[in-house]
Each structure stands twice: as structure tokens, then as C-alpha cells.
Computed example of a mutant assay.
Amino acid sequence: MGLNQQNNESSSGFRSLFNRSAAEVQRKKPGQPPGFLQHTGEQKLEAMRMTVHDYDANRYDSFTIDALDPTAAYMRPSSKTWIQIQGLHDITQLRKIMDYFELHPLVQEDIVSINQRPKVEPYGEVIFVVGRMITARQEGDATELKSEQVSLVLGKNFVLSFQESDDPLFDPVIRRMLVANTRLRRHSIDFLTYALLDNLVDHYFTALDFINETIESMEERVLDQPDPSDLQSIHALRRDLIFFRKSVWSLRDGINSLIRDDSPLISPEIKVYLRDVYDHLVQVIDSVESQRELVFSLYDMYMSSLSSRMNEVMKVLTVISTLFIPLTFIVGVYGMNFNPETSVWNMPELNWAFGYPAAWGLMLIIIASMLYYFKRKGWF
């Protein structure tokens, strides 16, 4: 679901998606020509990393490279190759890779602009996919929601993946590739694209589970002992879920276009698997909507708890004030100090030996009577 740290970290150790530096949300200057390459994120790696995953049903090779070698075996048309690129700050090296695969200038621009809306777009002989990986990761004593743009380019016999960090987002897919003669190894390259998208969507459920646990723990705190920091966390969760919904909704529309539209790069067999991804995205959207309703109810619950506590405080203060009203009257009357020697009606109690204890006794009887009456009425 992230959201300056003081404002967006709750007492439960939750950090939202909006706890980001200014470098992560910068944009290119207005008026730049289409296809202008500018990395709008932050440099998370010292150098760009490229990992080649070359495979077929019975063979799998994985190795890192410093630059593309057009004569290498993994570049042959008969090879199924996934090139995993981590680090988007080296524009010069990225341009060489993207130009080699003849990616459209707008695709190149979107890859290095990390604030893109998730989408699926065909560009000539490739399909360009922008997704957003949202994960819940442990960072010290806090669990933090992290968001990262992931770009995929599907070609006839290759897949390119681009991400800013070296976060092991696709490790589950890589582990599956190690097993010989699996569907992932037997099928064409479009099945790998499905597997990467499915892995991305699976992480959404993990993030939603964390957000749900956060909502439940926050609900207990709000009911038991509401704190001003809880209100900040509620607003942070609300913004996270809006961001989550926008990301998932756009990706769902993109997956639907892959299923609906005819493309030589997506076989009918793979569209069956993509429908499963689509169904999962619908489930995620339903869960996000449910959690948004819970967060809205959390706000109402927080305000009701504060109001209830305030009413309890006001009730106690009112009882105390009410108890002292007759006592103040008695003290005020006997504070007038009329001379009893002038008239028998001028406070004869002033010369009475038990006048002071009697005044205290009267006040205590009044207090006890009022407390008994309040208790009978159920006012406290």
C-alpha cells in the first residue's frame, strides 16, 4: 500500500507506498521530443546488470553479460531467450540494447520513465507490457510496501525485462526454469511472458494479505486506544489502496486486450493461461475494493472512538461539576458573614459550637445522595 516517514509509518511498523524520495517521482521537462530518453527514477545499482536465460525443453543456460553479442548462440532465431536487465540509469548502454532489438522510440521512452500507467501495447513485431510490482518486504523492524515498474518486451523468440533494482522479483520463475521438460521449458516464448505476468500478480496477493493484517491490527488499536498516529496511518492506507487499484485495474485491461486481440506472438493455448491471470486480477480488484471499504469504516470507527472517549471525559467532568454546585451554594451562603449579635436571623450557626462540622456533614450528605441518585440513573 510507501506514504515523510513520520506521517506514513504507523505504530505497527507499517510503511506505505508513498514513502518515496523526490528522485523517484521526478518527471522529464515539458516540451521534450517523443522518444527522448531520461531516467525519471533513482540509481539503485552501481552498474547495469544483464542476465541471459537461454533454454529449451532439455537445456537451460544462465549467465551474465556486459554487452550483447549478435554472434552468440542465445541470439539465434532458433533459441528461446530471456534477457533480464536490472538498472535503468545507464541510458547509453540501454539505448544500444533497445536499438539492437529495434524497439520503437516511444517504447524506449516508457521503459526509462518509471511512472508509467500499466498497459499492454503492440508495436510492430513486439508486444510491450508495463506492469507494477507491489510487494511487502521486511525492512528492519518494519514491513514496507514497495512498488517498482517492470517492463516486458515480447518478441518472436525473446523476452526482455527491465527493472530499476536487483530485487529478486522473478526468482520463482527462474527456479522453475531449472527443472527440465516442464511446460515453461517446452512451450514457446509467450508462455514465459505469461509466467512473468502471473508471478507479478501472485505478489499482489501477498501485499494484500499484509494490508489486511495491518487493517485488522489497526482496528483493534482504534477500538482499544485510538492515537493521532492511527489517523495518519489510515490516510496512508487509503492512498496506498487507491494507488494499488489504479495499477491493477490498468493491467487487467491490458491482459484483456491480449486475450481478445489476435496476435502472432500470443498463441490460443497461451490465451487460456492469460485468462487465469485475468481472473486473478479481478480477485485482486475485488479485494482492494473490500479493503478500501474497511479503511473508510476505520476512519468512522476512529472518530466514533474519539467521540466516545470525549463523552466519557465530559460525563465525569459534568458529574464533578454537578457535585460541587450545591457545595458552592452552601459555602457561598456561609461566606456572607452577617453578624448574629445584630439579629437572631443573621446566621446563628456562626456562634454554634458544631457549626463547622455540621456544614461539612451537610455537604457530605449532599454528595453521597447525589452519587446514589446518579448511580441509580445509570449515568456513570
Rank of each mutant, 00 (worst) to 15 (best):
Q6M: 05
N8R: 11
G13H: 04
A22L: 13
K29S: 11
P30G: 12
P33L: 01
D54G: 01
Y55D: 08
T64D: 10
A67Y: 09
P70Y: 07
T71C: 07
Y74S: 00
S78V: 03
I83F: 09
I83H: 09
G87Y: 12
G87E: 14
I91V: 03
F101R: 01
F101M: 00
E102D: 11
P105K: 03
Q108I: 01
V112S: 03
I114A: 01
I127H: 13
G131A: 12
M133G: 05
I134F: 07
A136C: 00
L152G: 06
Q163A: 07
D166R: 04
L169P: 06
V173C: 02
I189C: 11
A207K: 00
F210Q: 06
L223W: 05
L223I: 14
L231I: 12
H235L: 08
H235R: 05
K246T: 12
D253N: 06
I266W: 03
S267C: 06
Y273S: 12
F296Y: 09
S307T: 14
K315Y: 14
L323C: 06
P326M: 11
F329S: 07
P348N: 08
L350S: 14
G355Q: 08
P357D: 07
P357Q: 12
A359D: 07
Y372F: 01
Y373A: 05
F374G: 09
